[in-house]
Nucleic acid binder design. Structure first.
Lengths: 204, 204
DNA sequence: GTCTATAGGTTGATAGAC
DNA sequence: GTCTATCAACCTATAGAC
């Protein structure tokens, strides 16, 4: 990610990041030792310090990639839509990209969700700033949808957005690949969001 | 909870449990030391071992109370409904009780959600059994709703249930008491669930 | 760039006095 | 029932050889 770049040092750094994401995803922040990460990456614990100043810097790199990866996936999915797509369709596409990244590429995104409350305060505060930027990306889409009359006035856009993103963010906790695909899952969510679960005859 | 019972030992045990829930909520499983819990409870670390065999037994008691508390709150909210309430209304009431407990009583419920992936495997496996029992409580309500024609056939009941519970479970991560009340928040979710966000004129 | 060795700190848990 | 004292295990981080 970001750099498939040249130098050996860059490639080793990438290897360490992936090893760390996998380990953090499984055991969380505090329970994952640098020894385990180093073992996953095929080296000794002391060698990590050539690439990262300390554990905090390493975990922050994992957190940031988790959010940036989801955001890139969401924006790419919107880019694949026809230009005529309305804001609700864009939200649906963004959810599709977001969830596919979370459930399939997984390690960075899931580690990020699970570690939010374990990392040191300074790391979390900096990371939340980046996550809020991703939140504003959705906030703009919801505002456009309301302006175009696609969302009824009674809804609180901020609450709606956070509830829906929560449904997506929690899905790694229960998702079973034997059931619906990530795309089918998002379609359940967007169908409910747009028209609700009730048949037309029972709607108020 | 469960025992406001008599003996001094019982009351001390309750005090330790609350101290542990509060500490676990803030710092997670691994980063919360028994010394911190003991300090919260007004005693020394070694004294905890008179009441709990080890850290695992203590954290398991917190986890179980978190789920049982949410379930009790959900069932109580259903009990307050008129007998004529339909299954969708019961689901809404259960959500209301669940979220009020999670956002207001908080420590046990939030600690439980945040520690799921940090606790030792044996503890988590036993706990997930209790959580699945709570899941079946909702599964029955969704099935009744579908049987009564309140949910369209295209919906996957299991996916729908987990998405909606995910929206609730994630809410402690972003909830701001300065905004909507827990009840108003649930009403946003149930309004969307039942009829969707679009105005009637735009629905397909 | 990676290794080995180790310093320095914290933790869960136990033993025994009171 | 609670305290103090302590052990053994583990961790992050550093220093210096290669």
């Amino acid at each position: 990610m970001s750099s498939e770049a040249g130098t050996k040092s860059d490639r080793t750094r990438e290897r360490i990041l992936h090893a760390a994401a996998q380990a953090f995803r499984g055991s969380g922040y505090a329970l994952t030792s640098l020894r385990q990460i180093a073992e996953n990456a095929g080296m000794q614990a002391g060698s990590l310090y050539y690439h990262f100043a300390n554990k905090d810097e390493l975990v922050e790199a994992v957190l940031d990639e988790g959010v940036l990866g989801a955001q890139r996936a969401a924006e790419a999915a919107i880019g694949d839509l026809p230009a005529s797509a309305n804001p609700l369709e864009k939200i649906g596409a963004a959810f599709r990209g977001h969830l596919a990244y979370t459930l399939e590429e997984a390690d960075f995104a899931v580690a990020t969700l699970r570690m939010l409350h374990q990392v040191p305060d300074a790391v979390r505060i900096r990371h939340l700033r980046k996550q809020r930027a991703y939140g504003r990306f959705y906030a703009r889409l919801f505002e456009e949808a309301k302006e175009q009359g696609l969302i009824r006035a009674e809804f609180d856009l901020s609450a709606l957005r956070m509830l829906l993103l929560g449904a997506l963010n929690w899905s790694p906790e229960w998702y079973d690949p034997a059931g619906l695909s990530p795309d089918q899952l998002v379609r359940q969510l967007t169908a409910m969001m747009e028209s609700g679960v009730m048949p037309p005859s029972k709607r108020r």
